[in-house]
Computed example of a mutant assay.
Amino acid sequence: MAKIPLGCEPVVGSLTPSKKREYRVTNRLQEGKRPIYAVVFNFIDSRYFNAFATAGGNRVTVYQCLEGGVIAVLQSYIDEDKDESFYTVSWACNIDGTPFLVAGGLNGIIRVIDTGSEKIYKSFVGHGDSINEIRTQPLKPSLVVSASKDESVRLWNIHTGICILIFAGAGGHRNEVLSVDFHPSDIYRIASCGMDNTVKIWSMKEFWTYVEKSFTWTDLPSKFPTKYVQFPVFIASVHTNYVDCNRWIGDFILSKSVDNELVLWEPKMKEQSPGEGTVDILQKYPVPECDIWFIKFSCDFHYKAAAVGRGRYTCGKCNPALRFSLQDYLMFSRNLQLD
């Protein structure tokens, strides 16, 4: 368990926006009466940087930003199960460059949508409970990772439909996993966090041969030798309450908890002693009245700014209608050396 070293007092960052607004509302859209849980731009494929997708209820919708603030609806996928509620969606690519959308939610089923043919490409069944977040490997965008209420994180190959690795077990999360993220440059590393108040860093380096094997596997996906990764290489207790979102910022991690703050910190691992190390907290950003759990934050393409919602409600995912009833958005920026 990582400990915060003495003498490393964090700088308190400011979330107060400048008097001169650097943004303005250009359009508003209404998607029925069910809450929208996720909005994600396509940062995976430069051909579609102006396209974004939303997830909410049993629907995933694709939009395109046009000149003059116009937003066009391109396509919409409606799940056959009316009780499905998608909590998360992520852009990905097949190995031939075909753009995919990968969505999951209440039912624990991952839907891979081919946006070119506007059809379901594959459906993944494996998680034992709802899926809280899906993220795409930026260096290999046909790999996605999913975080679930079943206390596990799973790595999938969307081209072959194979579940390659399951991050769970003796050293895994002890409660619902709420968020997961790939390291932007270290292809082997991911970070996950959840309702056990911890952030865990995992390495796939030892199991990378299985990742490579998943691309050439020709037998049934169910016959693939899926491996369990039971021990993270680092465990950090930076927060004292649920950690509902974490993102890599270079080698730093920005994480959010329902204790009304975002924390920018650096994990300092001992290469010879996996699981051991210290945490250097670099900066804290207070976010008042942000005790609704499951509210994510998002970073811009260059990781220089982030946006986070907040509200005064005391219930979160137990009342989905309030989860995205946000009062305002707070913007903050910090120049970081990501080399």
Rank of each mutant, 00 (worst) to 15 (best):
S325V: 11
S192M: 04
R312P: 09
Y329F: 13
A168C: 05
C299A: 14
Q327D: 15
I187L: 08
D219H: 13
S152C: 11
S179T: 06
Q272H: 09
S298N: 13
V243I: 12
Y228I: 09
D300I: 08
Q283F: 01
V177T: 03
Y329D: 03
T26N: 12
I190E: 00
S255M: 04
E9Q: 08
F52S: 01
N246R: 03
D83S: 14
G56N: 05
S90F: 10
D244T: 14
K33P: 05
Q64L: 07
A92F: 01
V112L: 06
A307P: 04
V25R: 12
A307V: 14
A103C: 13
S76L: 02
S142Y: 14
F41V: 10
S257Q: 08
A236I: 04
K256T: 05
H183V: 09
D219Q: 14
I249V: 15
V145E: 00
K119Y: 06
A307G: 11
I109P: 01
N319C: 13
G250N: 00
K82H: 07
V145A: 03
F301M: 14
S117P: 10
G169I: 07
S179H: 01
S273T: 15
S76F: 04
P5E: 01
I162L: 09
F231N: 14
Y228A: 08
V25G: 06
L155D: 02
V279R: 00
G277K: 03
N42R: 11
G172V: 05
Y303E: 05
K19Q: 12
P274M: 04
C8S: 15
D150W: 03
